[in-house]
Simulated assay, not measured.
Amino acid sequence: MFDNRDWLARHVEEAIDPDLPIIDAHHHCYAVPPKPIFPSYPVDALLADKTGTGHNIVATVYVDSQITFRSDGPEHLRTVGGTDHAEAIAQEGIRRGGRNAGVCAAIVGHAPLATGARVREVLEAHKLASPDHFRGIRVRTAYDPDAPFNEDGYPGMLGEARFREGFAELAPLGLSFDAWLLHPQIGELVDLARAFPETGIILNHIASPIQIGRFVGKPAEVFADWAAAMADLATCPNVFVKIGALNMTFTGLSFIGRDRPPTSEELAEKQRDYVLRTIDIFGPDRAMFESNFPVDMLGVSYGVLWNGFKRMVKDFSESEKVALFHDTAARAYRI
């Protein structure tokens, strides 16, 4: 099992603006990672990051990794085990109290929308498993012929009639949709958002700009294409965006492979163009910061990551900072 904690410990920083309230809008939690390249991130590690880095993490949003399934019961409801797992973490945070409380304050599970209207039973089971915290689902639709991690996605998935039949079940239940896709797929999400204007959509990872395969050596072209597509998506008022998940090799913006981890200054310098353009396009009231831990832990420590975000928006007003770090996530996830 991969563990880079010794590498991350080579650079530690004190928290910048430690009183600024933060909702970590996207993280996972697992003792056994879904892939051997990821580090383990059990409950105690999550709570240590929430409480021990000096940042004021008041709440977090759990996003399912499709690895914690129910071991019995109807087969089609076993994915609800992800929500069972997250609700148990939320209750453990409440039990421990203090700064531990607020972990998994919102829960995003998984449901197979491509099964059509039958998915409603799964969605209702998620709500029963966590009446106070369950907020919506994510389907990992990320796909590109040059990407080595094509998860559950495939070409045209968001436009399929069966997928949209399942998607139509979200809004009547008051549920949102977390979208993980890659930047060449943004146009597909635009079409989906326009077809379902009453459904809240939260775009994960600023649409994961990729600089691998046919995109290698073309950073300016990737940025221009990504920015134009994001501007089109921003015309859909039902779409929010999460800012983060840039610390992986396929983005071309990570520090993986160096002999030491990045400082927050280095992080800000390398990633600010994407971050600031996202905020410029969507505005602070529709954008929120995420850690994407432990996946982004491959390239940066939790405390340094939040310092990097704070450096990128250091010239913003206090109200804009509060929106980006707290209020937008609170509104999107009803925290």
Rank of each mutant, 00 (worst) to 15 (best):
I57W: 14
H28W: 05
A48S: 09
H27N: 04
A48G: 08
I57P: 11
Y62W: 10
A45M: 05
I37M: 12
C29N: 13
G54E: 00
N56Q: 11
K50Y: 14
P36M: 04
S40V: 07
S40D: 14
K50F: 04
L47D: 03
T53S: 09
S40E: 10
F38G: 00
P42R: 14
K35E: 10
D49N: 10
V61C: 10
S40R: 04
I23T: 09
A48R: 12
V61P: 05
L46P: 00
G54D: 03
P42G: 01
C29K: 08
C29I: 12
A59D: 04
N56C: 10
T60K: 09
H26M: 03
K50R: 15
D24T: 03
I23L: 13
T53W: 14
H55F: 15
D44I: 13
T51C: 12
Y62S: 03
A48H: 04
Y41L: 13
T53N: 04
K35A: 03
D44C: 07
L46V: 12
K35W: 14
Y62K: 05
A31P: 01
P42H: 14
D24Q: 00
D44V: 13
T60Q: 03
P33G: 00
P36S: 08
A59K: 12
P34L: 02
I22M: 03
P34E: 00
T51F: 13
H55L: 11
L46T: 00
P34W: 01
S40A: 15
H55V: 08
D24I: 07
V43E: 10
K50D: 07
V61D: 12
D49R: 06
P42Y: 15
A59V: 06
H55A: 06
P42N: 15
I22A: 02
L46K: 12
I57R: 11
P34M: 01
V61Y: 11
A45E: 13
T53G: 01
N56S: 02
K50S: 01
T51L: 07
P36G: 03
S40I: 14
A48E: 10
P36L: 01
D24C: 02
H27F: 12
F38P: 04
G52K: 04
I23Y: 11
A48W: 06
P33Y: 05
P42S: 10
I22W: 05
I22C: 06
Y41T: 11
F38Q: 01
P34A: 00
F38R: 02
K35V: 11
P42I: 14
V32W: 01
D24V: 13
A31Q: 02
L46A: 06
P42M: 15
S40C: 12
I23N: 15
D44N: 12
Y41F: 14
A59Y: 05
H27L: 10
F38E: 05
A31R: 13
P39W: 06
V43A: 01
F38K: 02
T51M: 04
Y62I: 11
T51H: 07
D49Y: 06
P33I: 11
N56L: 08
H27Y: 06
C29P: 08
P42E: 15
N56E: 08
Y30R: 05
A59T: 05
I23P: 00
H28A: 09
D49C: 05
H28D: 03
